[in-house]
């Protein structure tokens, strides 16, 4: 079986990404029945930027800026015993009490589901929200745990030797989602 040559294909350009986020923001509002108990929590790193954008979009629509937080799941990873040297830990900040809230976790790519599992474990250490939902920009399939997103920006079918790169203006200088073929197993 011959592998496709290494290369990078853009599947969402800046405009397409913006449209996707707009739709996702509307779906979040629908899911949460408004902004009253809504809390957006982004997973480090790019989930945080995406959560911020969705919150701004919601603000334009509803006039309310919902609380946003950030979650670094490094310390909850299930593979910490096997990596070394240790990965750098980012900031975790949870906006206020979570009980009675509807938390929407925001992440850039959903793949095996282990990151979300770690995020759920970590959130549990902060409190007990009324409800937790999952909103991702890209679902690339390949789940290793029974975890499903409630809101998806784009569904992508991936082959072995491929990965998804999400770039955001705030961190990478441009908005883009690419599929990258590494020409070997990723």
């Amino acid at each position: 079986m011959s592998r496709p040559p290494p290369g990078r294909t853009t599947i969402l350009d800046a405009r397409a990404l913006s449209r996707a986020l707009q739709r996702m923001a509307v779906e979040v509002l629908e899911l949460a029945h408004g902004t009253d108990d809504l809390v957006l929590i982004g997973i480090q790193r790019r989930g945080v930027e995406l959560a911020e954008r969705i919150a701004k979009l919601i603000e334009k629509e509803e006039g309310v800026l919902v609380p946003r937080g950030a979650l670094d799941i490094t310390l909850y990873r299930d593979d910490l015993q096997t990596v070394g040297p240790k990965p750098v830990i980012g900031e975790t900040r949870i906006p206020g009490e979570l009980s009675g809230k509807h938390v929407v976790i925001v992440d850039d790519v959903l793949y095996t589901g282990r990151t979300v599992r770690a995020a759920l474990d970590e959130l549990a250490d902060f409190g007990r929200p009324k409800r937790i939902s999952l909103c991702v920009l890209v679902d690339r399939g390949g789940r290793e745990l029974p975890i499903q997103p409630d809101i998806v920006g784009k569904q992508v079918k991936m082959n072995s030797g491929e990965r998804v790169d999400v770039l955001v203006e705030e961190l990478d200088g441009r908005d883009e989602v690419d599929v990258v073929r590494t020409g070997g197993s990723a």
Binding site: V109, R114, S160, S185
Partner: peptide, 15 residues
């Protein structure tokens, strides 16, 4: 080395 072994043919890792 355990991380390598855990990766397997599909290419794993938490995501």
């Amino acid at each position: 080395e355990l991380a390598e072994a855990a990766k397997g043919p599909a290419g794993g890792g938490p995501e």
